[in-house]
């Protein structure tokens, strides 16, 4: 149960009672084990519906969803949910329980022995950067929004589920905290490798977070399911192109780093304007434009020269 599982949507359909049009229309896609799939689309296009079909907070009205080959219809709904981490926008922490108690909830109902629960809580708080000694006994109201969301993530990971469902988890955070949390989650994901379905309406977030992006449109129709590069470079139709934005060329540059390029030989350059090898091509282009130069030196993290980047190199790479 600790390893990741793949998720297969097979013509998954949901039509809410009293509605004629489906909210999710025959969605078929596979999320490979251990990957992050972002469900991207504007409000009301069925992202939350698709997500909650997986843990059966919403019941399918057609098609099927399989986790590691087993239909969710065939599983006991409580057992199914306990094997899936679920994170929502407002974190939904239990306000009357301490941070440690919040995280311990699922292990408790699963009947884990106390010492094991304590160890797990400690480990998870460490993992999300909130030391147990300082935060374990606080109540949710005593944490900032970003900290609450970290606890939400730790709580979802508590029983080490193979799957994480995240519904706009950083949507309520300010832009700086949001970006920080996105990086933190990617770092954490690299460690735990849970198969993750991540709902977002923000193309930048989707490009940052997703191994794959599923673009949904009004009526719960899947327009394109692809890697961020393909979504940016080859949008399937005008709708996707519009959603991705006219600056998709620039966005694509954020996906690649200078270290991915074959740089020209180092030839010195303007003082203090050196780029770093782990800067994105977008940062590099911005620096070139700002410096009014068509070439800039690149160094590694320690300041040792590694090469020179030119506007032409970036144009070729884009």
């Amino acid at each position: 149960m600790n390893s990741a599982a793949d998720i297969v949507f097979d013509e998954a359909t949901k039509t809410y009672p009293g509605s004629v049009r489906p909210a999710l229309d025959a969605l078929s896609l596979t999320v490979p084990a251990g990957e992050i799939c972002v469900l991207l689309g504007s409000s009301g296009c069925g992202k939350t519906t698709a997500l909650t079909l997986v843990n059966r907070l919403t019941e399918l009205t057609g098609g099927d969803i399989r986790i590691d080959g087993t239909s969710i219809r065939e599983q006991d709904v409580i057992a199914l949910r306990r094997g899936i981490g679920y994170v929502i926008q407002q974190a939904g922490l239990f306000p009357h329980l301490t941070i440690a108690q919040n995280i311990a909830t699922v292990p408790q109902v699963l009947g884990w022995p106390k010492p094991r629960i304590e160890d797990r809580v400690r480990e998870l708080l460490e993992l999300v950067g909130l030391p147990h000694g300082e935060y374990g006994d606080r109540y949710p109201a005593q944490l900032s929004g970003g900290q609450q969301q970290r606890v939400g993530i730790a709580r979802a990971l508590a029983a080490d589920p193979p799957i994480m469902l995240m519904d706009e988890p950083f949507g309520a955070l300010d832009p700086v905290t949001r970006e920080h949390m996105q990086d933190e989650f990617l770092r954490l994901h690299a460690q735990v490798r849970k198969t993750t379905l991540f709902v977002s309406h923000d193309i930048d977030e989707a490009v940052r977070m997703g191994d794959r992006i599923a673009v949904l449109a009004e009526g719960g129709k899947l327009l394109q399911y692809d890697t961020p590069e393909r979504i940016l470079h080859a949008p399937a139709d005008d709708y996707v192109a519009r959603f991705v934005g006219t600056d998709r060329g620039l966005k694509a540059l954020t996906l690649r780093r200078l270290s991915d390029l074959t740089l020209e030989p180092y030839a010195g350059g303007a003082n203090g304007t050196a780029l770093r090898a782990d800067d994105s091509l977008r940062t590099a282009l911005s620096a070139l434009l700002a410096a009014g130069a068509d070439r800039l030196p690149v160094t590694d993290a320690d300041g040792h020269p590694v090469g020179t980047v030119t506007v032409d190199l970036i144009r070729e790479a884009a």
């Binding site: 949910r81 929502i88 939904g92 922490l93 306000p95 909830t105 939400g152 979802a156």
Partner: peptide, 22 residues
């Protein structure tokens, strides 16, 4: 709060556990 109830349901608490614990 709705978000709290939803989180509880989503993590697999039974109706009874939601009553007693939340």
């Amino acid at each position: 709060p709705e978000a709290v109830r939803r989180a509880g349901l989503g993590m697999g608490l039974t109706r009874r556990e939601i009553l007693v614990r939340i």
